[in-house]
């Protein structure tokens, strides 16, 4: 199977790099080191006996998706849109951002991810879900590893569909 380019996008500090590192190297750090532009790395996943090489683009966080250089989206099969469950500022424009991404990548896969779930209670999570105009695809914790593998496997399933 040919490799697939997937972009990790969203506001800064939401945990894109942490998800990337957890998925690729199984490691996590509490220290925040911002990403200035783009870092690309590769990992193969196995979905229903099909091996899919994922080329992940970990990019610098932007408060709005239209600030991400459009060249970054060239040839992308999908976007993982990450927000931070503990910071409402990172999901207040979620509808606009998702619409923008859909226009930019017609037919592309967009995964909406609420990260840092280890920091919120079930009740808080429920409140966020009801307040959002959009459905969260998966909630993750790059720290504990919760749902990280699942996120990429779900994505893989959609890629071969």
């Amino acid at each position: 199977m040919t490799s697939k380019k997937i972009i990790l996008s969203g506001s800064f500090g939401v945990g894109k790099t942490s998800l990337f590192n957890q998925f690729i190297y199984n490691r996590f750090s509490d220290k925040y080191l911002t990403t200035i532009g783009v870092k690309v790395n590769k990992k193969n996943i196995l979905v229903d006996d099909t091996e899919i090489p994922l080329l992940l683009w970990d990019i610098a966080g932007e408060v709005a998706q239209d600030k991400v250089p459009t060249s970054y989206f060239l040839g992308a099969s999908g976007v993982i849109y990450v927000f931070d469950l503990t910071r409402p500022m990172t999901y207040q424009n979620i509808q606009t951002d998702i619409n923008y991404l859909k226009d930019l990548l017609p037919g592309g896969i967009i995964k909406i991810v609420g990260n840092k779930v280890d920091l919120v209670s079930d009740e808080q999570l429920e409140n966020i879900r009801t307040s959002l105009p959009i459905t969260i695809d998966i909630v993750t914790s790059a720290k504990t590893g919760q749902n990280v593998e699942e996120l990429f496997l779900d994505l893989g399933k959609e890629l071969i569909r």
């Binding site: 200035i36 783009v38 060249s71 970054y72």
Partner: peptide
């Protein structure tokens, strides 16, 4: 040309 800026340790 297509330009990509700020590529870290490619």
């Amino acid at each position: 040309a297509v330009r990509f800026a700020k590529i870290e340790k490619p």
